[in-house]
């Protein structure tokens, strides 16, 4: 479903991603691990169109996407969250959810003025869905809070909520549970599994917590200094000497 071939990216002298190739199939959860600064976020930024690659190709659903803009990539059904959650300061949690809804009639300024009934209908539909999702994620009581005022964990949960509104085919999550308390982590993981059952989409997640990885991922890729060091099931990875040296050995 997502195929990455020989991606390279440098910042000045630093080779942040150095010839990464990997493939992600449909309907499953994949992990990406690696020490700090190994290039995980950079790789996600390249896949999602936020950074331009220097070299290499990326295919999604058989279509080349590495020269598309971020919004065009989202339109094709591939979306992402950020390691540092983005939370609009003066938009409420509910507005955040509505923001993410796809194909809203009123996003076009002319429609917003002229096609009032259609705008209203699409609004009602999205509102209903947003409220249901917020209840599922246990965020409903915060619906009128400004998203800028949420805690770190709540922001991550909200990020997941927005993704639910988008209904993508594939999601890249950058450290969805980092710095989040156990209860919220549970909420986030439960939400992720729920969404997968409903829509059969796949997840590609960067995660530092090996427990989480073992619980949810079928296959894990290990990145080190911008290169793929190993790939395999969580168990295999945990036994791999190279990986232990580079990454787990440090913990």
């Amino acid at each position: 479903m997502l195929k990455i071939e020989n991606i390279e990216k440098s910042f000045g002298q630093l080779k942040a991603v150095n010839g990464v190739s990997l493939e992600i199939e449909k309907d499953d959860i994949f992990g990406l691990i690696g020490p700090n600064g190994s290039g995980k976020s950079t790789l996600f930024n390249i896949i999602s169109g936020f950074y331009r690659k220097d070299k290499g190709e990326i295919y999604f659903d058989g279509e080349r996407i590495d020269d598309l803009l971020p919004n065009q990539i989202v339109e094709r059904g591939l979306c992402r969250t950020f390691q540092v959650s983005r939370a609009p300061e003066r938009m409420t949690v509910l507005e955040n959810m509505l923001l993410a809804a796809k194909n809203q009639v009123g996003e076009n300024p002319l429609n917003a003025l002229l096609k009032r009934p259609m705008v209203e209908r699409s609004r009602k539909k999205n509102l209903k869905k947003a409220k249901e999702l917020l209840s599922e994620l246990d965020l409903f009581h915060l619906k009128d809070e400004y998203s800028g005022n949420l805690s770190g964990g709540q922001k991550k949960l909200l990020a997941l909520g927005r993704i639910f509104m988008l209904e993508p085919k594939m999601v890249l999550l950058d450290e969805p549970t980092a710095g989040v308390n156990p209860t919220l982590t549970n909420n986030i993981l439960k939400g992720m599994q729920n969404l997968r059952e409903k829509t059969e989409n796949s997840f590609f997640i960067v995660e530092h917590d090996m427990g989480v990885i073992s619980d949810v991922c079928r296959k894990v890729f290990v990145l080190n200094s911008g290169e793929i060091l190993a790939e395999g099931s969580p168990e295999e990875i945990q036994q791999n000497d190279k990986v232990l040296d580079a990454y787990l050995g440090r913990n």
């Binding site: 971020p70 989202v74 339109e75 983005r86 939370a87 609009p88 003066r90 938009m91 923001l99 800028g148």
Partner: peptide
């Protein structure tokens, strides 16, 4: 408003 407060986020939502 989303562009004003978090342009990256708006892009990531398509």
């Amino acid at each position: 408003k989303a562009i004003r407060d978090a342009e990256d986020l708006s892009k990531s939502l398509g």
